[in-house]
Design a binder for these strands. Structure first.
Length: 215
DNA sequence: CTGCCGATATACT
DNA sequence: GTATATCGGCAGC
């Protein structure tokens, strides 16, 4: 499986804005499947109107108010699951939405998991590009909410396989929100084709016609 | 590639 | 009733 140590609690027990760029290029392991995280977004608490935690704890967002290093999984739009890594400080809501990854192991299982009814991911690039796709590809759903990511033997964890975070990382506003859109709290790996949404890259010779604004 | 639209759980007014 | 941290299918370019 994946080489390298499992990220421990001290890694996550810091503000999400600090952890975010360091989490890029770490490997999210779920059973026999793994994806290199190439895009994350930070969400805070009472001062972040775009966050689920903005209005205080509920049954759904309880994990966000819990301990750093756990997985917050929520259901959205009536169909999709999305996964977050809870950050610090302890007992204050703070999390990183895992928005996209590059498949690195268990790709066959990912292809199976991503086939629902008639929908089929036609390119491997579509397996983990997007928060709900990433969760589905890795088999993460509501059962994984609250899982401890820092147990080395846990089913879901982050491995550091020695690939450094990008320097500098890409930075932009968060995707798909209406409030606090001006905050540049989305980090990504420049040039990675698995990044969802706007990214200042054309790695692999992809088009990049009318240059989109990028922070 | 871009844009529109529907599916529909959860939280909220 | 409305809004939402999304996605897939389709139309059109």
């Amino acid at each position: 499986m994946q080489r390298g140590p499992t990220l421990d609690r001290s890694f996550f027990d810091r503000p999400a804005l600090v952890v975010a760029p360091e989490l890029l290029n770490k490997v999210l392991v779920s059973g026999d499947r793994a994806a290199r995280i190439v895009e994350v977004e930070a969400y805070e608490g009472a001062d972040d109107p775009a966050s689920h935690a903005f209005r205080g704890p509920t049954a759904r967002n309880a994990t966000m108010f819990g301990r750093p290093g756990h997985l917050y999984v929520y259901f959205t739009h009536g169909l999709h699951w999305c996964a977050n890594a809870v950050c610090g400080p302890d007992a204050t809501p703070s999390a990183l939405l895992l928005r996209a990854g590059a498949p690195v192991a268990g790709v066959d299982q990912m292809r199976v998991a991503r086939q629902q009814g008639r929908s089929v991911a036609r390119h491997d690039r579509d397996l983990c590009r997007g928060p709900a796709r990433l969760a589905q590809a890795l088999g993460i759903d509501g059962q994984a909410d609250g899982a401890d990511l820092t147990q080395g033997r846990g089913i879901i964890r982050f491995a550091d396989d020695g690939v450094d975070p990008p320097d500098p990382p890409g930075l932009s506003p968060r995707v798909g929100i209406r409030l606090a859109v001006e905050r540049p709290w989305r980090w990504y790996v420049p040039g990675d084709p698995n990044v969802s949404g706007p990214s200042m890259n054309s790695a692999g010779g992809r088009s990049m016609k009318s240059p989109k604004a990028d922070w």
